[in-house]
Amino acid sequence: MPVTAATRLDHLAVARRFAEAPQTWVTPPRFDPDRRWYHRLAVTDDYEVWLLTWLPGQQTELHDHGGSAGAFHVFSGTLTEDTVSGPATTPRVVSRDLGEGAGRRFGTHHLHRIVNRGADPAISVHVYGPALTSMTRYRLGPAGLETLTVDRAGAQW
């Protein structure tokens, strides 16, 4: 799947390009009732592309992307993104629903959670640049935002 210089750094354009060509995916989407399923579709010097599936109720924890920017595109279904902003002691959470065909870019300091709050399965394509090396997971506790773990690529996923 060719990616031009004009789209190379537009992570959402890359995600959309992959979503528009499911016949090129190296593996078909699968749905796992016990946990979200994911598979890396491509990796380049500039970015990597992941395919994720979401059954109703499946979600990520609050997390960042270890300094990588990126985007995600909803291939099918509806996903809700809960974005965290503000100071760690008094964080603010804003939710937005993204239906089929919708997408979202994010920068290097983005903190969010993605949830399938709908009744139908969902599929999404995610692009990160540079490729993920770590992800920090958080929770909202009594003192505000608390770090849970730092997961490393190649070790935890």
Results as ranks from 00 to 15, higher is better:
Val74Trp: 04
Asn116Asp: 10
Leu148Pro: 07
Gly141Val: 01
Arg152Cys: 06
Thr147Phe: 02
Gly154Glu: 05
Ser134Ile: 00
Arg117His: 11
Asp45Leu: 11
Ile123Glu: 06
Ala42Leu: 10
Arg35Met: 06
Glu48Arg: 08
Met135Lys: 07
Ala15Glu: 13
Arg36Pro: 08
Gly103Leu: 09
His63Val: 01
Val3Thr: 11
Ala88Ser: 14
Met135Asn: 12
Arg113Lys: 13
Gly70Lys: 01
Arg16Gly: 04
Thr133His: 14
Ala153Gly: 03
Thr133Asp: 14
Leu41Val: 14
Leu41Phe: 07
Val3Ala: 00
Gly67Tyr: 01
Asp120Cys: 09
Gly99Asp: 03
Asp97Ala: 15
Thr133Val: 14
Gly144His: 03
Val84Ser: 04
Gly99Gln: 09
Thr4Arg: 07
His63Thr: 01
Gly86Tyr: 02
Arg8Trp: 02
Ala122Lys: 11
Arg92Gly: 03
Pro28Asn: 11
Ala42Tyr: 08
His65Met: 01
Ala71Gly: 02
Asp120Met: 10
Leu79His: 04
Gly129Met: 10
Asp64Asn: 12
Trp50Ala: 09
Thr53Glu: 10
Arg8Met: 08
Gly129Asn: 01
Asp64Arg: 05
Leu111Gly: 04
Arg36Phe: 13
Tyr47Asn: 11
Ala102Phe: 06
Phe72Pro: 06
Tyr138Trp: 12
Gln58His: 04
Ala131Arg: 13
Pro121Asn: 08
Asp120Lys: 09
Phe31Met: 05
Gly101Ser: 03
Ala13Lys: 08
Glu81Trp: 03
Gln59Asp: 09
Gly101Gln: 07
Pro87Tyr: 01
Gly107Asn: 10
Ala13Tyr: 08
Arg8Cys: 05
His39Ala: 13
Asp82Leu: 13
Pro33Glu: 03
His126Lys: 07
Ser68Tyr: 05
Leu51Met: 08
Ala69Leu: 10
Arg17Glu: 13
Arg35Ile: 00
Leu145Phe: 07
Gly129Ala: 07
Glu61Ser: 15
Ile123Phe: 03
Gln58Cys: 00
Thr27Cys: 09
Gly86Leu: 04
Asp82Cys: 12
Leu79Thr: 09
Asp64Met: 00
Arg139Ile: 05
Val14Ser: 04
Ala5Arg: 12
Arg96Glu: 09
Arg30Asp: 02
Pro87Asp: 15
Leu132Ser: 01
Pro121Met: 05
Thr78Leu: 03
Asp34Cys: 00
Gly57Val: 00
Val93Lys: 06
Ala6Ile: 13
Pro29Leu: 00
Arg35Gly: 11
Ala21Ser: 14
Arg30Tyr: 03
Phe31Leu: 13
Asp10Met: 00
Tyr47Gln: 11
Gly99Val: 01
Gly118His: 05
Ser76Gly: 01
Asp82Gly: 06
Gln59Gly: 10
Leu111Arg: 15
Gln156Met: 13
Pro142Met: 02
Asp10Asn: 10
Asp32Cys: 10
Tyr38Trp: 12
Tyr138Arg: 11
Gly129Arg: 09
